[in-house]
Design a protein around this nucleic acid. Sequence first.
DNA 1: ACGGAAACCTGCTGGC
DNA 2: TGCCAGCAGGTTTCCG
Length: 303
Amino acid sequence: MPELPEVETVRQGLAGHLVGRTIVVARAHHPRVARRHRAGGADLCTRLAGRTCVSVERRGKYLWVLFAAEGEAPADERDVLVAHLGMSGQFRVSGDLSGDLSDHPHLRFDAQLDDGRWLSFLDQRTFGGLALDHLGPDAAGRRAVPSSLAHIGADPFEPSFEPAQVAAAIRRRHSEIKRVLLDQSVVSGIGNIYADEALWMARVHPARSAHRLPAPTIRSVIDAATDVMAQALEQGGTSFDALYVNVNGESGYFERSLAVYGRQDEGCRRCGAPVRRLHFMNRSSFVCQRCQRPPRPGSNEMP
DNA sequence: ACGGAAACCTGCTGGC
DNA sequence: TGCCAGCAGGTTTCCG
């Protein structure tokens, strides 16, 4: 569910409530919420108690809370709480529209803060999760990120993101362009919705070979992805239903702006031809078949 | 290295 | 009304 704009909306909301706050007590309510924390949920909660939040950061679809140093850990090795929302994760802060969540059927974790508020993590499908980690250098050596995220590439909103370099990396892949866009190690933050929107904007069919696309075309796909995610962020992200909401329990409004995603058999907003739904990589892709021409079978498109 | 499929989950929708 | 298949915005892992 949540892609970069939705996760960034959550990050901003969390930062407003968590920075400067200390965790009084933490509780895990479902075993899967801490499955990435090797020592388990009880250990996670014990270690979180007493920690003070310094900042909330993000790369791609991952969030992390940076804690104030305990002892003499160097600044670039500090402890963090890493979070991923998976398909249906939500962070909520009490005092918002949601009221008391302690009996919510999807409550997986919560923590009381020193201002009396509760931070709650709800997750219907339990693909999301939390883990304690520490900072370390990323693969490019450009930014301190949680050690478990070292393999994730920079996202388009990071200062270290170099569109030309990323375009070249994409072009080296002998794979379909949509598959490469969804590979978080190349560029992070893009999911199924914004991949389809970016490819539509750039008039590129998702099954085209990344290797055979002209460099300027790949660049235009990257620029389109950046633009569409920036526009979505301005509107608080994309919400189809109550599964995606910000920390106050409110929906985003970008759904009404989507050009192709979820618009099967409706008219392309550019040329009016019907939007088609393709089954691709075990998921759905939405394309305008007039604007986005498929690779010709005889073109040696996928060598 | 690449493509495909399955795994991890719950819940909703639509067809019969 | 009930049942079942299909589907959902993500990531990881295995297999050929």
